[in-house]
């Protein structure tokens, strides 16, 4: 198999890799905020349940969570295994990343000085207005570096979808490597991931720069 054929075949899987990447971000970024707010809830039960949820998701391997989401329903209830593996893959990724994002959000929210809330309260901002207009924009700026970190990790983590046989780029690479007894597909995969992350770095860098207008 020529290098070109290899790259073409793996590029086909790259679409699925991108699907995992973008769908995971689409769901986990807002879900993480909900989890963070539940985690900071004044209701003890809600916050401890959420804390437990976060600790399980952060304390167990993503690979295990992928298996649990994909095959768990079958082993527990005899339910059918999803034919379209993108669904369980995105569910597992989104939940896992939401847990990480939640802790980043929480750190960011707790780092905002109380004076910002008080100033907004005295000026008559409602709770929602205070959060959306005053707190959240400042949180976003503060957490951007940590978010970039997670997003870069997510690019590499997409390769874990192979554990549930989702034919993304790395799975295809492994198949080619195996049938061709060649190490080349792994080199190609490495280059793909590197370039992907270069793009991510560039985009995130642009966003950080746009938030640089204030300190």
């Amino acid at each position: 198999m020529s290098l070109m054929t290899m790259i073409v075949k793996m590029s086909e899987g790259l679409g699925k890799t991108c699907a995992i990447f973008f769908l995971t971000l689409l769901f986990s970024l807002p879900l993480g905020m909900i989890v963070a707010l539940l985690r900071m809830s004044k209701n003890r039960v809600v916050s401890s349940v959420t804390r437990f949820f976060i600790s399980v998701l952060r304390g167990t391997p993503l690979m295990l969570q992928l298996l649990a989401v994909t095959y768990g329903p079958y082993y527990l209830f005899g339910a059918n295994v999803a034919r379209n593996k993108l669904i369980p893959v995105v569910i597992a990724f989104a939940i896992n990343y939401a847990a990480y994002f939640a802790e980043i959000y929480r750190g960011g929210i707790e780092s905002i000085p109380i004076g910002q809330y008080e100033a907004a309260e005295v000026l008559g901002y409602s709770k929602v207005q205070t959060f959306m207009r005053i707190i959240l924009p400042q949180v976003v700026k503060r957490i951007m570096p940590s978010i970039t970190n997670e997003v870069v990790t997510l690019v590499k983590d997409t390769s874990m979808a192979f554990t549930v046989s989702y034919q993304e780029m790395f799975t295809i690479g492994k198949q080619i490597a195996n049938s061709q007894t060649s190490f080349m597909p792994f080199v190609v995969a490495g280059v793909f991931y590197y370039v992907f992350n270069d793009v991510v770095d560039y985009v995130m860098g642009r966003i950080e720069k746009r938030l640089d207008y204030y300190r």
Binding site: E118, V122, G124, I134, Q138, Y214
Partner: peptide, 20 residues
């Protein structure tokens, strides 16, 4: 209370301007 809030303003020691 929200209505009463419109009657006064408060200037803080640390300004508490919105930096963004």
């Amino acid at each position: 209370l929200n209505h009463f809030r419109t009657r006064f303003g408060l200037v803080f020691q640390n300004f508490n301007l919105f930096p963004h």
